[in-house]
Design a protein around this nucleic acid. Structure first.
Length: 628
DNA sequence: AGAATCGGGCATTTTCCTAG
DNA sequence: CTAGGAAAATGCCCGATTCT
């Protein structure tokens, strides 16, 4: 039996923690641990939404929550689009105001007292979460008279407070934002004043927002909903200890917790949003809650932003922008009840000119398109057939629409599949009664909930542990000898199936292994890049054709081959030189030995000649002596 | 071989706070 | 109340590594 509950001090997740909360972890003891953990989760950190199981109740506005969420539990057939503008909309002085639909008593009010700034902040945040917006800190004022270093006034504002104007053109290159600002200059605020000795009181509460609020069901997409509960942190941290990265750890959590609906998660990285439903909901949320940056002043662009889902809008926006800068009318002629324009695409639009650099073997700017238009019938047709193949209008048609002085977006050409109000209903996984599986999950969740609650209260945590130990003893008493299930039955119950009487094994379908085959793409397809992503250039040759990487770069290969050849040549040359040198040496040696021998012979000869001469001389002298 | 994941680098936006 | 700045957060790109 365990006798101790270890409370592991955890480093916080980097994301979702503001500067303030980081400060809480300044303890040097954590530093090293924190750093490694932070590095681990830095890029791919996961946002999990701590959900409170309905059975356990939520501390605030439980009825409100359950009323709302009951809406979602309808079958797919009788799906009704959830009205998005949560709250009461009032129009004053030509300005729309969204006022959260929260009953009195559950929202801030003039004169409310709070012990501390933190409490006031938490209260407002909680209200904001129910109301469907986000909060951040606002201005603050400190009085010199204040002895206790307390702030005199603190504002808490809607996260859409203020403005963040798009950067103006810098030099020749216009700096275009990739992401639009979320600020709408919302005036909603909650302001508190210091009250000597008692805390802070609310002296102003501006309830109305100048933007729509987020529906309860989409509140998971709010930053304030991003949180990783204590036990989840422990889990992810321990997973990291055994070399299980955050993504895998998260996937594991997902499995343990059941479905997305139970765990509720939100992630910034598309790659991890594997669940189609969530990807769609996120797109839907973005479409409704944020306003994109417009590239033109055209009414048609604004309308498009309201008609299309966000990701599709960006595509349409590109075309509208291109219609302004890269299309030219070459000729117009009357046809039947309409007009026929010949449009030249100059390919000014850089992105697309790179993408469609060559169309049917011709450079883009050489391509002319014919647009048939009957504005009265809202009829447009272009020979580029973009609408027919993609379901989205082309730049040439947008150009003609502008020429025809049509201001509204032709609704006829907004296909239902791209439009905002055609997003599919969220398929809700219904709890299927009290199956053992559900009961187990419920138990795990309730225990986890308690642990999260008590995480920072060691005494209460200990009490909870003791209580659990008692329950264990009770379980022992209740069931002294647990029934043994046979392995087969256990597996069957886990899998939720029973073993069939007769086993029929079908011949499995032949499925090719992942990545074992590669479809050969045509040259046109290769140059198209349908994903829209900017392709990587080869690092080596910087080739903009983007059809290869450094590993497959012909230039690299050529360089390597050239180097090999030159190396080989150098080697050959060196060997040749060596051979020559050796030959020379041999020759020199031979010569030397020959000359030495010759010299020796000569010397010998000389010596013998000399000796002979001397002998002859001696002989002569001797004979002269004898004779004289 | 291709998919999935990781992680450094960088640009940009948001948050929080202060000076004037 | 506004403007502006520092720091934190966010998100994309892209090459490298690991997994399947």
């Amino acid at each position: 039996m365990r006798s101790e509950v270890a409370v592991v001090p955890l480093p916080p997740y980097r994301l979702g923690l503001g500067r303030k909360r980081h400060d809480q972890f300044k303890d040097t003891q954590f530093q090293a641990q924190f750093k490694s953990f932070e590095a681990l989760t830095r890029r791919r950190a996961i946002y999990l939404v701590a959900t409170r199981p309905a059975t356990l109740g939520s501390p605030h506005g439980a009825t409100h929550r359950s009323l709302r969420s009951s809406k979602s539990h309808c079958s797919e057939n009788d799906y009704e689009p959830v009205p998005y503008s949560v709250g009461v909309v009032s129009e004053e002085a030509g300005e729309k105001l969204w006022v959260p639909d929260i009953p009195v008593g559950q929202k801030p009010a003039y004169g409310m007292m709070y012990h501390s700034l933190q409490q006031a902040y938490e209260y407002y945040k909680d209200y904001a979460k129910r109301a469907g917006f986000e909060v951040r800190l606002g201005q603050q004022y400190k009085s010199n008279k204040n002895k206790h270093d307390n702030l005199n006034i603190k504002y808490f504002v809607c996260s859409k407070e203020g403005t963040n104007p798009a950067p103006t053109k810098v030099g020749a290159k216009s700096k275009q934002r990739k992401h639009s600002s979320k600020r709408t200059d919302c005036k909603a605020a909650f302001r508190v004043k210091y009250f000597e000795g008692r805390g802070y009181w609310c002296y102003e509460f501006i309830e109305g927002h100048n933007h729509s609020l987020v529906n309860e069901e989409d509140s998971v997409f709010l930053v304030s909903s991003r949180d990783v509960s204590y036990t989840q942190q422990v889990f992810l941290y321990q997973a990291s200890q055994v070399n299980l990265g955050p993504v895998k750890g998260f996937n594991l959590l997902r499995v343990i917790y059941g479905e997305y609906d139970f765990i509720g998660f939100y992630n910034h990285f598309d790659s991890v949003v594997g669940c189609q439903k969530f990807a769609q909901r996120k797109n839907d949320h973005d479409s409704r809650y944020t306003i994109p940056d417009f590239h033109t002043e055209l009414q048609i662009e604004k309308e498009a932003s309201e008609l299309y889902t966000r990701s599709i809008f960006f595509d349409v926006q590109t075309e509208i922008y291109a219609s302004v800068i890269s299309c030219m009318s070459v000729s117009v002629s009357d046809v039947d009840s309409g007009k026929k324009y010949v449009i030249q695409d100059t390919g000014e639009d850089e992105k697309l000119s790179r993408r469609h650099r060559i169309v049917k073997g011709k450079p883009l700017y050489d391509v002319f398109y014919e647009v048939l238009c009957k504005p009265s019938e809202e009829f447009y047709q272009c020979t580029c057939k973009r609408f027919e193949s993609y379901g989205l209008l082309c730049r040439h048609i947008f150009y003609v629409i502008r020429l025809s002085k049509v201001k509204t977006f032709p609704r006829k050409y907004v296909l239902r599949r791209w439009s905002q109000d055609s997003l599919p209903p969220a398929s809700v996984i219904q709890a299927s009664g009290d199956t053992p599986d559900m009961i187990l999950r419920e138990i795990f969740r309730s225990v986890e909930y308690c642990v999260n609650r008590y995480a920072n209260e060691p005494e209460l945590l200990q009490k909870f542990r003791d209580h659990q130990v008692q329950l264990m003893a009770k379980a022992d008493a209740d069931v002294p000898i647990p029934k043994k299930t046979n392995k087969r039955d256990r597996i069957a119950s886990i899998l939720g199936v029973s073993q069939p009487e007769e086993i029929v094994v079908n011949i499995p379908k032949q499925v090719s292994t992942k990545g074992s085959r590669k479809r050969i793409k045509s040259s046109i397809e290769r140059s198209m890049n349908p994903s829209g992503k900017r392709r990587k250039n080869c690092r080596f040759c910087k080739c903009s054709m983007n059809d290869h990487n450094q590993a497959k770069c012909n230039a690299v290969r050529a360089q390597i081959a050239a180097k090999k050849a030159s190396d080989k040549a150098a080697l050959r040359e060196m060997k040749q030189r060596e051979r020559l040198a050796a030959k020379k040496a041999r020759l020199a040696e031979k010569n030397a030995s020959a000359s030495a021998a010759k010299k020796a012979r000569l010397a010998e000869k000389n010596a013998s000649a000399l000796a002979a001469k001397k002998a002859r001389l001696d002989e002569k002298n001797a004979s002269v002596g004898e004779n004289g």
